Simulated scan of single mutants.
Amino acid sequence: MNITDLKIKAAQIRIDLMTMITAAQAGHTGGSLSNTDILTALYYRVMKHNPTNSKDENRDRFIASKGHSVESLWCILADLGYFPKEELTTFSQFGTRLIGHPNNKVSGIEMNTGALGHGLAISVGMALAGKRGGKTYKVYCLMGDGEQTEGSIWEAAMAGAHYKLGNLIGIIDLNGLQISGKTSDVLSSEPLDEKWRAFGWHVIEIDGNDIEQLISTFDMIDHKSDKPTLILAKTTKGKGVSFAENQISWHHIVPTVEQLNLATIELRQQIEALRKEEN
């Protein structure tokens, strides 16, 4: 996919996740909208993975440490064929596999996550196993910015640097908001760039909603380095849906049918504008 195709895909995924959350009457809308561009870049362009062979030993690994924002991930995995797209209609319903956090009973999910602060430690273990086993795969771990107040994050950060895991890439969805307010007001963890550098990581700051910048950043990472990489991806919570953007309440608001219709119209307009721009 070229950059325009990826932007269109991200908008389509946003329509799918909004539709899924509305039908289920449950979900974390804002964070899923903010991380959609990151996941789109990873799954459709950057990562080595195969929906028909999800256990390939050489596959790249993705861990969603901020597991509550799983909706965009479910929609992407369904779109890629890891499971039937029709199954999205069962999201958060009784007996479903598609619960509100990643569930490794589903093809394409490496590990159950959602208890914040655990994903990076899991990723360190996977990356260390790959390095010691002579494997070429990379491990990508998506964290939240509110999650940076968990002590286990910093224990894992020390371990990743100690073992010189150049095959480990941490990404922080830095949208500045969490369930109870601004991250800077709830419990500030800034300056994150200086802290991660002090813990021995190579730190890159980018616009996490700019797919072109995401692609170029992932492509330039030196995986043979003796340092793991941390990407501070500055995003907008609720990205793509104007009335949800930068609104704390949209952390877990479920759209009404009217709001879903408005969001769908807005996202389809974005798609049409991208297609016209390309032509």
Rank of each mutant, 00 (worst) to 15 (best):
A64N: 15
S189W: 04
A161E: 06
H118R: 03
T149I: 13
S188G: 06
A121V: 00
I3T: 15
E190Q: 15
Q270H: 09
W74H: 07
G238A: 11
E147N: 06
K7Q: 15
Q270M: 12
K164W: 03
F218P: 04
S249T: 05
I169A: 05
K224R: 08
D79W: 08
W196N: 13
Q269L: 07
K66A: 08
E87D: 15
Q148G: 03
Q213L: 04
A161Q: 04
I3S: 05
E245L: 02
F94H: 08
F83C: 07
I76R: 01
I3C: 07
L267E: 14
P102T: 07
T235S: 14
E245K: 01
F83Q: 10
K237N: 14
S188V: 07
E266L: 12
K85T: 00
D16H: 09
Y137K: 06
F83L: 02
L260R: 14
W250E: 02
D193K: 15
A10E: 11
T149V: 12
P255C: 12
T96E: 11
T264V: 14
K135V: 03
S180T: 09
F218W: 10
F218S: 13
D5M: 11
G151T: 01
N53P: 05
I153A: 02
A24F: 08
S188K: 07
Q25R: 04
I63Y: 09
